[in-house]
Simulated scan of single mutants.
Amino acid sequence: MARRLCLADFMSVLKQVKELCAYLSRVGLDDAPDEREMSVRAMYEDLIARLHSDDIPDDAIRPVIDYFVTKVFAEWDAEHTDQLRQAHEPGGA
């Protein structure tokens, strides 16, 4: 799979990751969760499409994408919840 990822693809994926990180740093807990999920899912789907071999069924790929999307949001939620907690503590921002 990794051999299918040429330098241009790799650079494109890095750009997507950077843009997604910037997007996630701008949105908050009250912003549209469906939009956040669509953005993260789209990045992983694009990455998988670049690496995907036609002989792997979509049903096998979907749980992998779901896992990574879940991990991203678990970390994102933890980070934002911690920031919110710190902001409400005495002496917080």
Rank of each mutant, 00 (worst) to 15 (best):
L5H: 00
L5N: 00
L5G: 00
L5I: 04
L5S: 01
C6M: 02
C6L: 06
C6D: 01
C6R: 05
L7G: 04
L7F: 06
L7Q: 09
A8Y: 09
D9N: 00
D9P: 00
D9M: 00
D9S: 01
F10Y: 08
F10I: 13
F10W: 07
M11G: 15
S12D: 02
S12F: 03
S12V: 03
S12R: 03
S12H: 09
V13M: 02
V13P: 02
V13I: 12
V13R: 03
V13F: 05
L14E: 08
L14T: 11
K15N: 06
K15R: 10
K15H: 07
K15Y: 01
K15W: 03
K15E: 05
Q16H: 15
Q16G: 06
Q16K: 10
Q16M: 10
V17K: 15
V17A: 08
V17M: 14
K18A: 10
E19V: 10
L20M: 11
C21S: 13
C21Q: 13
C21A: 15
C21P: 06
A22K: 11
A22G: 11
A22N: 09
Y23F: 11
Y23V: 06
Y23M: 05
Y23R: 10
L24P: 13
L24H: 10
L24Q: 09
L24M: 12
L24V: 08
S25Y: 15
S25G: 15
R26T: 06
R26C: 08
R26G: 06
V27I: 08
G28T: 14
G28V: 15
G28Y: 11
L29V: 04
L29D: 04
L29H: 01
L29G: 07
D30S: 12
D30A: 12
D30W: 06
D31N: 07
D31S: 09
D31I: 11
D31W: 03
D31Y: 13
A32S: 13
A32Y: 06
A32K: 12
A32C: 06
P33K: 00
P33N: 00
P33F: 03
P33L: 03
P33Q: 03
D34R: 09
E35K: 09
E35R: 06
E35P: 03
E35G: 06
R36G: 02
R36D: 07
R36A: 02
R36M: 05
R36C: 05
R36K: 10
R36N: 08
R36S: 03
E37Y: 03
E37N: 04
E37S: 03
E37T: 00
E37P: 00
M38Y: 02
M38C: 04
M38S: 10
M38H: 09
S39Q: 07
S39H: 06
S39T: 04
V40Q: 01
V40W: 01
R41L: 00
R41G: 01
R41S: 00
R41H: 00
A42V: 04
A42L: 05
A42D: 05
A42Y: 09
M43F: 14
M43H: 11
M43I: 12
M43K: 04
Y44E: 07
Y44I: 09
E45G: 14
E45Q: 13
E45H: 14
E45D: 15
E45F: 14
D46F: 15
L47P: 01
L47C: 04
L47A: 07
L47D: 07
I48K: 12
I48H: 13
I48T: 14
I48L: 13
I48W: 14
I48A: 09
I48E: 12
